[in-house]
Design a protein around this nucleic acid. Sequence first.
DNA 1: ATTAATTTGATTGTGTACAATTCGATTGTA
DNA 2: TACAATCGAATTGTACACAATCAAATTAAT
Lengths: 142, 142
Amino acid sequence: MDKYDCLKLDNQLCFPLYVCSKEIVRKYKPFLDELDITYTQYITLMALWDKGALSVKELGKQLYLDSGTLTPLLKTLEAKGYVTRTRAKDDERNLIVSLTDEGLALREKALAIPAKMGACLKIDPADAADLYRILHTLMAAI
Amino acid sequence: MDKYDCLKLDNQLCFPLYVCSKEIVRKYKPFLDELDITYTQYITLMALWDKGALSVKELGKQLYLDSGTLTPLLKTLEAKGYVTRTRAKDDERNLIVSLTDEGLALREKALAIPAKMGACLKIDPADAADLYRILHTLMAAI
DNA sequence: ATTAATTTGATTGTGTACAATTCGATTGTA
DNA sequence: TACAATCGAATTGTACACAATCAAATTAAT
């Protein structure tokens, strides 16, 4: 009840958000290890699986990541043989990231992951729906 | 409506969690820059402001961080003059992190931050309450 | 056409994060 | 009292994450 209450960890909204994000990403790790990819590589592949091919700029916009993060990450995915990186013919400033056959095949192995995560998270479905709505509202506001 | 729907970014709960966490931490940056600290250093100081002094182990438990993250971070805070690191007399395995006068004084400057963040986040109070409850439920389940 | 402004990725530097290992200190047990 | 097991930090290695800067390509304006 003193003037410092607003600086207590317990009264922060950002802190549990930060912790939950980290801890859930960590929960993914054993499942992603089986595919030899990291969480950030996983969401990158999700975007590509959905859209087929995207420029680095488009990827950055969808994933909320900048080129300083994406460039080395995409080179890693290229080295693993999951994507190719080629300049667009019409505008060589655009670098197009496309899935290889191997990258596409990885999608089949990834199919099992959401169910496995759901099993070890045990969140109430109504809470999950609320959380989804609130987070998307927040994302739109930022 | 195909079998790959569960791998779409839009159907993930973890992804918006991950994005919101990152983006909100970024929102803090200009305010924390004024105090010459990072977000992780900020929550570390929050724990210390509240408790006075803590061992590295206790800090790690409260912040959900391990020694690989905390050790360099605490050395940075020590170099800035905000904390001291001294071994406990009774058990020299324990490293006690304490606030210096400067570290304590920083609390006054930090007092303005929560209000500034609240102003630029514009989240519905009812949503904030729901979010707080759901995230804490999640944290407890992990 | 020449130049200026913009766009796009790549690079560099700082700071997390965490797994795995190491090392010194302590505790439990024979 | 040895000495094995445990504990708490520190260290090492890999991988983000982003600000700031740079460089090449394109577009716009004169």
